[in-house]
Nucleic acid binder design. Structure first.
Lengths: 141, 141
DNA sequence: GTATCATTTTCCTGTTTGGCTAATTGATGA
DNA sequence: TCATCAATTAGCCAAACAGGAAAATGATAC
């Protein structure tokens, strides 16, 4: 149905959400890891994750205090796999995505414990620019 | 780049624009034909067409007083073909799309001349519901 | 139980967007 | 040259949306 298609396409039609999808390609991440990379408020990330989940693009798993998200493998939205494949095939050479991946490699070195406590401050100084949102959010949207 | 991706995905993330894309799959149509099928104001359609064109999804051709639009075959936006393919592979069984196609078959019987003059009134009575926008636009957006 | 803490939800703000009508554009044809 | 007419642009409004701060959840650990 066209509403179902609309839900997924709207979910994908936002740069922050696309960045999240690209970030999750290698495997699952908890909310505070995603937050550290994207540099947005936790509440904002949480809302984006909810939108992606409703669209059938993500699945959720709780482990103790942390909630892990991953790309959906089982699709209740028939269009979700197509969109996931398209995103996976896109933006491989995008600078914002590259920077997100670089940050992720730093984030991966820090125990979740510490990361949730300190956020970006837990990352080695000098390797993280202060401006949140990396290079994606300049100028008018 | 992620902005380019965003432009296309936003263009696709609207039901009226998806309906236009599906409508153009068989071949080009002029603005007043599209308007007659969708049942929206001409200005609205024109704006949608502009958005799709900017996204690299459509191309334009002028013939006398009429402007014909068709799916883009030459892509200045690298993501456009992927999205077009995805849309083409989707919604084949959607009732709104089916109704649009039925209306299109009626529209195709009427000379563009007459159609631009009279709009939906040029179509055989009884085969067109009064409610514009078919079944796509119910409820809150 | 109770405090802690990651995540979610609620509420607010400024911006974007889809729709309309009215005005403008630009090509046609008398 | 001027009237006509399809299409576009401008201007407006209400709804939707991305973002943040603050309150609410809900699981853990003491």
């Amino acid at each position: 149905m066209i509403e179902t298609f609309e839900t997924v396409s709207k979910a994908v039609a936002d740069p922050s959400r696309v960045r999240i999808l690209k970030l999750l390609e290698p495997g699952e991440l908890c909310v505070c890891q995603i937050t550290a990379v994207l540099g947005l408020a936790t509440a904002t990330i949480s809302k984006h994750l909810a939108a992606l989940k409703v669209a059938g693009l993500l699945q959720q798993r709780r482990d103790g205090k942390w909630v892990y998200y991953r790309l959906a493998d089982r699709a209740f939205n028939p269009y979700a796999p197509r969109f996931l494949a398209m995103v996976a095939a896109s933006l491989e050479d995008d600078p914002t995505i590259a920077e997100d991946r670089r940050l992720l490699s730093l984030v991966d070195q820090v125990p979740v414990q510490v990361l949730c406590d300190q956020g970006r401050a837990a990352l080695p100084a000098g390797l993280v620019s202060d401006t949140p949102g990396a290079s994606c959010c300049e100028g008018p949207r």
